[in-house]
Amino acid sequence: MKLSEIIIPKRINLNLKSTTKDGVLEELVKLLNLDTHARETVLRTLLAREELGSTGIGKGVAIPHCRSLVVSKVAVAVGRSKAGVSFKSIDKKKAFLFVLIVAPPVGDPPGDYLIALGTVAQGARLLTKDKRFKKIRDIRQFMKLIKELEE
């Protein structure tokens, strides 16, 4: 599984406006294009997950994630904040890249979900380490950079 295979261009927002953790989560969930109730359910579960410990994994990356009944397959959304958002990350630094993963409950052990999480964690850290990441202007450039880093 590659990062470029699980990210859909229409679920990328390179100009997140929010300055808070909750706001970023809301913006990311919106990208999944769920109905209002499903969106609220996912948001509630994500906030509950964040209460267990931040999903900010350091190096400017956060991977909010959960499993929820309201999705039928693994859904991924990507956001970038130019100013960065305090996400209570393990390195206590701001996060700039956010990759949301919502997976269905079916599948126990949750194989696809964990594989997707691992792929995202690895790929996202490579992305934020690259000097070009903050200069990217559009989604096409973003996808191109991901593919380059995967090679």
Binding site: T41, R44, I57, C66, R67, G118, A121
Partner: peptide, 23 residues
Amino acid sequence: DILLLLRDARDPGQKRVLGKMGL
């Protein structure tokens, strides 16, 4: 969803895998 989150959080195997990712 909360019960699933609790089950996942209590699963030692999953906790180990997530820990390695920094979660």
